[in-house]
């Protein structure tokens, strides 16, 4: 018999519970309550004067990077963005306080979802100490009040398993599909155009985009093809046309993000190494987080 020290520095996870995943009532309940957690307004037109959509994108990008770097659970970032949007839909906020708000939202989402949540100190460091832990804690209370303490919002991530399990997908590809779906969901959360969409639609569109992107639908055209969208639409009670539009929108946002990413990369290269600089691969390797690099594409 071997003696093993099982006290490791890893998070112990519960197994997926078939009682929850195979029961239609859970999915139906999620679909019933999800609208309650949407922001009340498209707030850039109505509520906000100082902040603009591109600023939301800036803070969202920063939040995503922090979550990635801290290896937060996948749902922390979309949940934090839900808090941010719901707060901004009711409170006119100054540009200079937007990063504080983003930090507070991550703080709350992390506490709700993680066994080892982000600390206030850490988050303040990520703002380059432009805010103090005391301020973070104070504004946490303000944000909680505005969210009416309703923190357990439904996120697109809540739907992933429910959708994926209802599709005839190859077992060996499931992990990869999940990964891509999560990426698409994170992408949507950075883009304000998706802020008012129900989480189930974002999840369904993301699953569609992931399956399509991985070309799993082309293996057996008779099974998939157009019927993939039909099947997806049926699972989350979404209209086929709406879902198609959503999926296309997700794909368009991806393309524009990729283009921007490439441009940024080229600019970085040029500034760092001069126009004749080599080593795109090197740069690529160094700036790609490990968890994505080991995704075999």
């Amino acid at each position: 018999m071997e003696l093993l020290c099982l006290e490791m520095d890893t998070i112990i996870r519960a197994r997926p519970d078939p009682n929850l995943l195979c029961d239609d009532r859970v999915l139906q309940s999620l679909l019933t309550i999800e609208e309650r957690f949407l922001p009340q307004y498209s707030y850039f037109k109505v509520v906000q004067k100082d902040i603009q959509p591109f600023m939301r994108r800036m803070v969202a990008t920063w939040m995503l990077e922090v979550c990635e770097e801290q290896k937060c659970e996948e749902e922390v970032f979309p949940l934090a963005m839900n808090y941010l949007d719901r707060f901004l839909a009711v409170v006119p906020t100054k540009k200079c306080n937007l990063q504080l708000l983003g930090a507070v939202c991550m703080f709350l989402a992390s506490k709700l979802k993680e066994t080892r949540p982000l600390t206030a100190e850490k988050l303040c460091i990520y703002t380059d100490n432009s805010i103090r832990p005391q301020e973070l804690l104070e504004w946490e209370l303000v944000v909680l009040g505005k969210l009416k303490w309703n923190l357990a919002a439904v996120t697109p991530n809540d739907f992933i398993e429910h959708i994926v399990r209802r599709l005839p997908l190859p077992e060996d590809k499931l992990a990869l599909i999940r990964k891509h779906v999560q990426t698409f969901i994170a992408l949507c959360a950075t883009d304000f155009r998706f802020a008012m969409y129900p989480p189930s639609m974002i999840a369904t569109g993301s699953v569609g985009a992931a399956i399509c992107g991985l070309q799993l639908d082309s293996a057996d055209q008779s099974q998939w093809g157009d019927s993939l969208t039909d099947l997806l639409a049926k699972i989350t009670n979404t209209e086929v046309d709406v879902l198609k539009e959503c999926q296309e929108q997700i794909e368009r946002v991806l393309v524009s993000n990729l283009r921007e990413g490439r441009q940024q990369q080229q600019q970085q290269q040029q500034t760092q190494r001069g126009p004749s600089g080599k080593g795109l691969d090197e740069l690529d390797q160094s700036s790609t987080p490990t968890d994505v690099r080991d995704v075999n594409l």
């Binding site: 600023m55 800036m58 803070v59 990008t61 920063w62 995503l64 990077e65 922090v66 990635e68 770097e69 540009k95 200079c96 937007l98 990063q99 460091i125 990520y126 703002t127 380059d128 432009s130 891509h180 990426t183 994170a186 992408l187 950075t190 985009a209 399509c212 992107g213 991985l214 070309q215 794909e251 991806l254 393309v255 993000n257 990729l258 921007e260 990413g261 490439r262 940024q264 970085q268 700036s287 790609t288 987080p289 994505v292 690099r293 995704v295 594409l297």
Partner: peptide
Amino acid sequence: CRMMATNVRILRRLGSGPTRRNLF
């Protein structure tokens, strides 16, 4: 769609520079 799949990973670095930064 083909292009999407091969490029999903680029998404993960939407930003530039160090994560620790003051935005506004």
